[in-house]
Design a protein around this nucleic acid. Structure first.
Length: 128
DNA sequence: CAGATGACTCCCA
DNA sequence: CTGGGAGCCATCT
């Protein structure tokens, strides 16, 4: 089954677009969902290539695995706060509370992507 | 094909 | 917390 792979980046944007407001995901998680040899770095690069498409893709909901924001402009944090995302004293997103669990299973089957790899360690952390 | 670049992640000191 | 290094991948010259 060879898929045309729409530049792959398009696929990344598609997944990011599924992240609901008030929740966040990490580059690695998005990469795993997209699959097809996608990597956490690729996701970051793809988002960097957004440019004019930034208005259609909630790129601000994608942060590093620790909940830290890599972008220089703190606009990302502002947008997340406006969506109701909570930050801790260190300016990191509370992943244990806002981490996106992945897209809908039906949507996933349609896009031929991975539901989401096993990663409950963050959920078990007593960050509450 | 090789080299350079880039919003990542993990490991060690 | 800070610093450095390695591994991974897509895209452009």
């Amino acid at each position: 089954m060879s898929q045309p792979t729409p530049a792959l980046y398009e696929r990344i944007y598609l997944v990011v677009r599924q992240i609901p407001a008030g929740e966040v995901s990490s580059y690695g998680d998005v990469a795993s969902i997209v699959g097809g040899g996608c990597d956490a770095r690729s996701v970051g690069y793809a988002l960097g290539e957004l440019g004019p498409h930034a208005a259609e893709v909630p790129w601000q909901r994608v942060v590093s695995r620790d909940g830290t924001i890599s972008t220089r402009g703190l606009l990302q944090g502002q947008l997340l706060v406006a969506e109701g995302v909570a930050f801790d004293e260190q300016g990191r997103v509370r992943m244990a509370r806002h981490r996106w669990r992945g897209p809908d299973p039906a949507w996933c089957a349609e896009q031929r992507c991975t539901p989401l790899p096993p990663r409950d360690d963050l959920e078990q952390l007593g960050l509450f």
